[in-house]
């Protein structure tokens, strides 16, 4: 029953991926911008990415739990709208840093801070251009055994251990060393 493998592999043509394509390890997170644990995880992942540098890739997929987090869906859409203008990660961080302010007007403010093309941003945002992609992210997570947020995968396998910085870093380094 415990299907632990990622059903939709990370693919830089559909996913937001940080780090070199040929990195020996890919860490994928399914997250929700209104989830307090994801906010915590975002800080930890940032540190881990900094520490491991070119040895890893980090990818993020949306898993908004919209019935308990009423702002999560629009926040995810704002990140994708920014992504269409090559500013996904900038928006991603702003959203987590401002988790208590995710009303639509806040999201538009963040787009302005990032100096996005506002007419394009608003068009994409209000037309829900990326809602389908977000649903695809969500369903790929459901089928891969995501049972809450954040859920991590390391090279296609679900990571079930604690995601505190020390444990996560050690696990990644061990896998990198095994693959050498």
């Amino acid at each position: 029953m415990m299907e632990l493998e990622l059903t939709l592999p990370v693919n830089s043509s559909r996913d937001h991926v940080l780090g070199p394509q040929k990195a020996p390890i890919t860490l994928l997170e399914y997250g929700d911008y209104e989830c307090p644990y994801c906010r915590q995880a975002n800080l930890i992942v940032g540190n881990v990415v900094q520490q491991l540098g070119d040895k890893m890739r980090f990818a993020f997929r949306n898993f908004p739990l919209t019935q308990i987090h009423p702002h999560a869906q629009h926040a995810a859409e704002a990140a994708e709208c920014a992504g269409a203008q090559n500013k996904f990660w900038e928006m991603h961080d702003i959203l987590y840093e401002n988790q208590q302010a995710l009303e639509d007007e806040n999201l538009l403010e963040y787009a302005e801070i990032l100096e996005l093309n506002m007419s394009r941003f608003q068009k994409d945002f209000y037309n829900h251009t990326f809602a389908g992609l977000i649903r695809e992210d969500f369903l790929s997570g459901v089928r891969s055994g995501v049972n809450g947020t954040p859920t991590f995968y390391i090279n296609r396998m679900r990571y079930n251990d604690s995601w505190d910085q020390e444990t996560l870093t050690r696990t990644l380094i061990d896998i990198i060393n095994e693959n050498l």
Binding site: M1, E3, V142, N147
Partner: peptide, 17 residues
């Protein structure tokens, strides 16, 4: 039919399949 360890959220991949 599936019984999960009581503290583990079973997810929905199995039931969907």
């Amino acid at each position: 039919s599936y019984v999960s360890p009581i503290r583990v959220n079973p997810g929905a991949d199995g039931i969907l399949k």
